[in-house]
Structures are given as structure tokens and as C-alpha cells.
């Protein structure tokens, strides 16, 4: 009955050598039982790439996120933004979008229906 979540990281090729783009894919549910541990994976990336890190969070397989995981999301965003990077979200499910909207986070972090659109936005710096 423990909550299952897997977090995997994938590289995205870019023409700009100064720029790092990663897809962070979440499959399962982020809740009180696992979020403190899994959040460290993203903090690890932020430490590893202290400048120009762009993260596309693939939420296609994310079924649930609680308020603490939303807190981590805002913290990641702040740290990445300070170092000239971006965080955007792709393929979000309606119930997850709903919760991000109610806390006002969609004003801060852009969401894209498809991975192609998300990649285009990051690689062409339209976001």
C-alpha cells in the first residue's frame, strides 16, 4: 500500500553548448511518504548544473501530488530561475493541473499539452 513513484531523467540534445536541457519524468504519486526523498533527485540536478539548467517535467504518468510536493516544485523553480534556467511542465493530467491552478502555480510555471511543444519552447527560448 506504500505509494509508488519513479523519477527518471533524460537528456535533450541542444545546439547551444551553454545550455542544459533535461526531461524529468514522474510516474506514480508524489505524497508525504515519498516526496522528501524523491525531491532530492531534482536538487541533485540543480547542484550538478548550476547555470542555464532547463527542466521539462514530464507529468504524463503523475497521478497525484500533495501540497508539499507543490512546495518543492516552487523551490526548484526559484533556484533554477535564479541561475538563468527554466522549469516547464509537459503532458499534465487534468486533476494535477486543477491543483496547480488552485494554489496559483500556473501563473508561475507554464504547462504544455505535448512534449514536442515543451521542447520547442525550451530550445527556442520562447519561454
Amino acid at each position: 500500500m506504500a505509494t509508488s513513484i519513479t523519477v527518471t531523467i533524460e537528456d535533450v540534445e541542444t545546439q547551444d553548448p551553454e545550455m542544459t536541457v533535461k526531461i524529468v519524468k514522474f510516474v506514480g504519486q508524489l505524497d508525504e511518504s515519498n516526496v522528501d526523498e524523491k525531491a532530492q533527485i531534482v536538487y541533485g540536478l540543480i547542484s550538478q548544473y548550476p547555470k542555464n539548467l532547463n527542466l521539462i517535467l514530464d507529468f504524463d504518468g503523475l497521478e497525484y501530488m500533495n501540497s508539499k510536493s507543490i512546495g518543492y516544485l516552487t523551490d526548484w523553480y526559484g533556484k533554477v530561475f535564479e541561475s538563468n534556467g527554466k522549469i516547464i511542465i509537459a503532458k499534465i493530467k487534468p486533476n494535477i493541473l486543477d491543483i496547480l491552478q488552485v494554489v496559483g502555480l500556473t501563473q508561475l510555471i507554464k504547462t504544455f499539452p505535448t512534449m514536442e511543444e515543451a521542447k520547442f519552447a525550451v530550445l527556442n527560448k520562447t519561454e
Partner: peptide
């Protein structure tokens, strides 16, 4: 406060 870790629940 958008950047706060807690307080949304």
C-alpha cells in the same frame, strides 16, 4: 508567497 515550501494545504 509563491516561493514558500509549505502553507498551501
Amino acid at each position: 508567497d509563491m516561493t514558500s515550501l509549505r502553507g498551501r494545504g
